[in-house]
Structures are given as structure tokens and as C-alpha cells.
Design a binder for these strands. Structure first.
Ligand code: SF4
Ligand code: SF4
Lengths: 154, 154
DNA sequence: AAATTGTATACCTGGTTAGTATTGAATGCG
DNA sequence: CGCATTCAATACTAACCAGGTATACAATTT
């Protein structure tokens, strides 16, 4: 578990492809095609990405979407947050916690610390970095190399 | 988002309290009381924790639950996994991916790398470490101190 | 045997997520 | 101008699953 929603996952995938094409524009149809995602779903995701200003849209003939910034300057954290909202491991990590127990819970002020670290990792991983990961011999991208140093043994 | 399920959250909370009491035993009623969780919910969670061998149970009068190991030797990753199963950010991080697109998706072999790093962070944070986190001036526990060194500025 | 305490199973149900359909608005072109 | 192209906005539906509950059972101690 510890899931990232499907739509957010799709968002990252789309951004990845837009990054590969940049600075060219891609129409929604094309995006649906190269990502193998159903077109109506792409529509929904694009709205989030535009609202978050991660992509720039242009209408009319020869319109489409374009990644707003170079892939190296778009973090996974931003991408996920664009679709799913603020990254919060637990309820009490949110700005306004809605947890019933909150004031009586010992951990209410502990989780945010853990959350911060996890988010930090995601903030330090850009779309460009993502390209360098591989399943079997995972390449650790430069921004994370220092972070990983003590645990390189796996 | 990037949520940890509520039940897993409860699991950690329960383990935290068991840790504080160790090596004393705590009956389910008592656990429900000090955690402020509904008793039937506690029942369900305990089953997971016992199955994962994180806690030891004893029946009969003066029975209850006991943390199997010192808090410093129980990681958040274990705790969460005990309740929710393997930690997988996306479908393609699981042992058997069920994602429709998987073989045609550019990122199918990239996510596992990211996943590994996040999991590593959670593996390096123990219940004991958790006690040292605070909301406003979060204390970084020793095992993570090295990891955090480059990003201490927040 | 009786009291205490955990175990197992089965069920319900509300909310969220993923996915779809429809209609509308902006842009560019000839 | 008016038409083709393309994105925007809204509203809806369906499926699923996490969270929560109830009940009956088994083990241990005294
Ligand atoms: S307050 Fe306690 S119970 Fe509520 S979300 Fe935070 S940790 Fe979980
Ligand atoms: S394969 Fe591609 S789409 Fe399927 S889960 Fe992994 S990343 Fe998301």
C-alpha cells in the first residue's frame, strides 16, 4: 500500500511524455494515443495539470499542451500534488486535520515530521531524474545520491 | 494525498502505546481506551499485528498484547506493511502488477526505483525514533540524520 | 467449571475514485 | 465572417474498497 492514486500516476506519465516532446505541443488525442490511456480520462487529468500551471494549453487549430518548464524543474511532488492535492500521509499532516481523535492522539504531532521527509524525497526527484531510473540496476539521480549514500548497499 | 490507510495509522498508534508499556501486557479494552479508538476496530487491527508477529498475544485472565521487540527495532515500514501489505506507490511496484498498460508504459520500470527510496526512509524510522519527532521543531532521529544532512535547511 | 480474554468470520455501508457523456467557449484560417 | 479545430466546464454514473460492526467461538487461568 502507501498508494499514489491512479490519476496522479497518469499525470506523471503524461508529464513525462510532454517532457520528451518539449517544447513541441501535443494535442489531447495524441496524448491519449501515446500514453495508451482512454481519452476522457486524459481530459480530466489535463485540467488538473493546467490549473497547477505545470502545462500550458493552447486552443484552436494546431493547439495542444506544452510542458511549462524543463523536465528537470518539475518535481514528482508537484506533479502528484497537482492531481491529488497536498501530500499528506495521514489526516493530521493536512493543514486542517479532520481526525476525530486528533487532540487526544499521541502521534498527531509526530506524523508531520515523517511526512516532511517523504515529501522532501519526492521534491528532490524531477521528471528528468525519473528517466534515469531502471528496474534492475536502479540509477540513483544526482539530487538523491547524497541522500542515498548511507544506504547504497541495497 | 499519498495516503497511508486509516487502519495502518491506527496500527502505528497502537504499537506506539504498546512500546511505551513494554514489556507489560495490555488487554484489548485498555488499548481501545488509551488510544481512543472504537474497540471493534482495535480487534481488527490486532489480528494484523499478531499475524505479522509484531505483537505477542496471550489469552485468559491477565492476558493481553505485548510488543514483540523493543520499539527501536520496529520500523514504520513493517508496521504499515503489517496492516496494508507491501508498500507500493503504484501498481507496477507490486510483485505482480495488475496494471492494464504495464507493458506499454514508459514508467513501469521507473516507479520501482522511486518506491525503493521512499520505503527505505520508512524502514529507517523506528517506533522509538517516532517519539523524538515534534511538530514545530522536528527532531531528526539519528538513523535519518545522515539522510537528511543535505536538506537540513528545512 | 466459570470467568476472562483473544480469535475468527461474515456482513454492511458510506465515501471515494475512476471513468464517461454532453455541452460550451476560445482560437486560428481562409 | 463563418467554419474547423481544439481545449474547458459540468455533471453524472458505476464500481469498488476501506472502515466499521456484530456475533459466535476457542483458549487459558484459577
Ligand atoms: S491524529 Fe492520530 S489518529 Fe488521527 S490521523 Fe493523526 S495519527 Fe492517525
Ligand atoms: S505501469 Fe504505468 S500506468 Fe501502470 S501503474 Fe505503472 S506507471 Fe502507472
Amino acid at each position: 500500500m502507501l498508494k499514489v492514486g491512479r490519476l496522479a500516476d497518469y499525470g506523471v506519465l503524461i508529464l513525462h511524455h510532454l517532457g520528451r516532446m518539449r517544447p513541441a505541443r501535443l494535442a489531447m488525442d495524441s496524448i491519449a494515443e501515446i500514453t495508451h490511456l482512454p481519452l476522457p480520462t486524459v481530459r480530466k487529468v489535463m485540467k488538473y495539470l493546467v490549473d497547477a500551471e505545470l502545462v500550458i494549453s493552447k486552443r484552436g487549430p494546431n493547439g495542444g499542451y506544452q510542458l511549462a518548464r524543463p523536465p528537470a524543474q518539475v518535481s514528482l511532488a508537484e506533479a502528484i500534488a497537482a492531481v491529488e492535492g497536498p501530500l499528506t500521509l495521514t489526516e493530521c499532516c493536512a493543514a486542517r486535520s479532520t481526525c476525530e481523535i486528533h487532540d487526544r492522539c499521541d502521534l498527531a504531532d509526530r506524523w508531520p515530521g515523517v511526512n516532511a521527509i517523504v515529501v522532501k524525497v519526492l521534491e528532490r526527484t524531477s521528471l528528468a531524474d525519473l528517466d534515469r531510473f531502471g528496474r534492475h540496476e536502479p540509477h540513483v539521480p544526482p539530487p538523491l545520491r547524497e541522500l542515498m549514500a548511507p544506504i547504497r548497499h541495497l
